[in-house]
Amino acid sequence: MFKDVDSIPHGIDFKEYILKTVGQCRILLVVIGKQWLTVSDSKGVRLQNPEDLVVLEIRTALEKNIRVIPLLVHNISMPRASDLPDALKKLVYMNGMAIHPDPDFKSDLERLIQSIKTHLENIPEFSEKITEKKFTKDTNSFKISQDGRYRVLPSGIIQDTKTNLEWIVGPDEDTSWDEAKLWVDSLSPRYGIGWRMPTIQELSGIYEKGKGKCNIDTVFISPRKNLWVWSSKIDDSPSEWYFYFPNGTKYKFSCKSRLGYRAFAVL
């Protein structure tokens, strides 16, 4: 998954990088809300500016016949063709999907995820990667956690048989959020997919109350009293969420803070 807010390396031509990345993707999600047609910047209405990055992203995907899925939020309807510049008019004919607030939000996202999985499974190169990621049954090639849930490969990668996620534990040293992100970005892709920082939900998924000294399997980290792990960034705030394993709770703190914080990568 590519998100331009936190996926572009520093010092890179972001316009060129975005267009190259969009050209390589197989699905583009276009989130359309109440102000999508009218939001403006110093150059005027963004949607009417052919050089606007969002316009360029959508146009590139449409021109390359990439699957484009409009996501309609805040009970908005699909825009009319007359509301869009010529380069984007094709968007209105793409079968979109409404994403509703709670209590339907989770079920809507599950339908979206299933739709994406179905599409990718029909693409040979992705189908092969999905097949490749199925965990091996050769017990000589990995170590197994005491309860059988986790498999630790010789490379240090931890496979979670419950969620099918794979994990790498970062250096056992104090780490700021920026340092955690740089470390994750430095990891070599696996199955052709890049590693990323985990979400709070994914971190809570490996929290197991009563297990070890810190409510987490020791395949992840040596026994300790405290463990704070940074989560993926969700906004431009100078603070970010982290998961505190001793009590299974999330907190938000300065991204520059280092003392006690650790980095995990997930795939």
Rank of each mutant, 00 (worst) to 15 (best):
P50F: 03
V169D: 00
E63N: 15
G44Y: 07
E16W: 09
S107Y: 13
L153N: 05
I12L: 01
T21F: 00
W230Y: 01
N247S: 12
I200E: 10
R196M: 11
K256I: 00
F126Y: 15
T136E: 00
F142S: 05
K233I: 10
I193M: 07
L227G: 07
G194D: 09
S257L: 04
V39D: 08
C214P: 04
I27P: 00
F245S: 03
W228L: 05
V54Q: 13
G33L: 10
G44E: 03
W230I: 03
S107V: 11
K34E: 13
H74A: 14
H100Y: 14
D4A: 07
A87E: 15
M78H: 10
K117D: 06
T60M: 04
P154E: 03
L28C: 11
L29F: 14
D108K: 05
F126S: 10
Y251W: 12
G212H: 12
Y150G: 02
S231D: 05
L112E: 04
P171N: 05
L84F: 09
K106Y: 15
I157E: 09
G212A: 11
G23Y: 03
S257H: 07
N95V: 15
G148Q: 02
T175A: 04
E16V: 06
N247D: 07
S231E: 02
L29T: 13
K209N: 02
N226D: 08
V30M: 08
D108F: 11
A265E: 00
W177K: 08
P70H: 15
T118H: 06
L62D: 03
N164G: 02
I123P: 00
R111N: 09
F105Q: 08
F243G: 01
E125R: 02
Q114I: 07
R67T: 13
P9M: 01
F245R: 01
R26K: 14
K256L: 01
K43T: 15
S231Q: 04
K256Y: 05
L71M: 07
K225L: 06
S231I: 09
I123R: 01
G205M: 06
K20T: 10
F243I: 04
G210S: 10
C214Y: 03
T118C: 13
W167F: 08
W177P: 01
T118I: 03
E208F: 12
I18G: 00
I66Q: 10
W228R: 14
R26N: 13
N95G: 14
L165Q: 14
K64S: 10
D6M: 03
R46Y: 06
S257T: 05
G170A: 10
L203F: 02
A87F: 05
A81D: 14
Q48L: 14
V68G: 07
I58M: 11
E240Q: 03
E132Q: 14
R196L: 11
A98Q: 15
A61P: 11
W230D: 00
K252V: 04
V55F: 15
P246A: 01
Y242H: 11
H119R: 09
D235H: 07
Y191D: 15
T249Q: 07
K43P: 10
S186A: 09
S145D: 00
S141Q: 08
